[in-house]
Computed example of a mutant assay.
Amino acid sequence: VEDRADDLLKEEQQQNPPKVYRQSVTYAREHGELQQYHASCHLNERCRDEIDAALAQRFDGLRLGAGAVEQVVTEYGLERTKYVLAAAIQTRDGDGRISRTNREWADSIRTIKDMDRRGFDRSCYYADLQAHTCLLDGFVNQVRKFEKAKAQPAQNTPER
């Protein structure tokens, strides 16, 4: 019974993943939302690690195999996946290996600048993907295609 309850809870979390917290730690502290802030940052870091794992598992040396995007989105949701990828691209400012369209896509996603007292941006913790920039660029292409396919209404086949 406990295993089934755990399975049901996991299914519910996959269908409704927690929202990305889009405020700074200062805002969270002032508004009593530190728990949500820390939980979101933790999930962002886990999402980053899952992206790296998916790329390592599914890249054969020449191409990125199918299923990498689904592996991450199933666990962390499309919103968080896009958020972490956008932050990763934004921290690689000036890297010419990221396509112009993917850079524009990343810039269209609002990420937070969460500066600490020393002027260090805390977002670098979850934006620091280990994957090579070209592999990251290819993965973002797949995420964008995945999102576009999900946005299109399902076509019903006509009955005979």
Rank of each mutant, 00 (worst) to 15 (best):
R160F: 12
Q23Y: 14
E12M: 08
P17H: 04
R110M: 09
S123R: 03
D93T: 09
H42V: 06
D7G: 07
A54R: 00
E75M: 13
L136M: 09
E75V: 13
D137M: 06
S123Y: 01
F120M: 05
G138H: 08
A54L: 04
K19W: 06
F59Q: 03
G67E: 13
L62T: 11
I109L: 14
V73C: 03
A28E: 01
L43Y: 04
R160K: 12
R117F: 12
E30F: 12
L136S: 02
D49N: 09
I98R: 00
Q15I: 05
A53K: 02
I109R: 02
Y76K: 05
P18Q: 07
G32N: 02
E12H: 07
C134R: 11
Y27G: 10
V69I: 15
A87Y: 00
A154G: 14
M115A: 03
Y21M: 11
R48E: 04
P153N: 08
D7K: 11
P18I: 06
E75W: 08
T81R: 01
A149P: 02
R63H: 10
Q35K: 13
A28L: 04
I109E: 02
G65C: 08
K19H: 14
E12T: 07
T133W: 04
W105M: 00
A106N: 01
Q142S: 15
A5K: 15
G94V: 02
H42D: 12
L78P: 03
Q152K: 15
E12V: 07
D6G: 11
E104Q: 14
A154D: 06
E70F: 14
V84R: 01
D121N: 13
E2N: 14
D114F: 00
C134K: 11
Q90A: 12
E2D: 10
V25R: 15
F139W: 06
H38N: 12
F139M: 08
Q90H: 09
R4F: 09
Q130D: 07
A151V: 06
R46S: 09
L55C: 03
D95K: 04
L129D: 02
E30C: 09
V1N: 11
I98H: 00
G119F: 01
G32P: 00
S108R: 10
R100Q: 10
M115D: 00
V25H: 12
T133S: 10
L136P: 03
I51H: 00
H31P: 06
N102G: 11
T74L: 13
R63V: 10
R117N: 11
R117E: 15
T157G: 06
Q13T: 11
E33Q: 15
R103S: 02
Q14V: 07
N16C: 04
D128N: 11
K10D: 05
F139K: 05
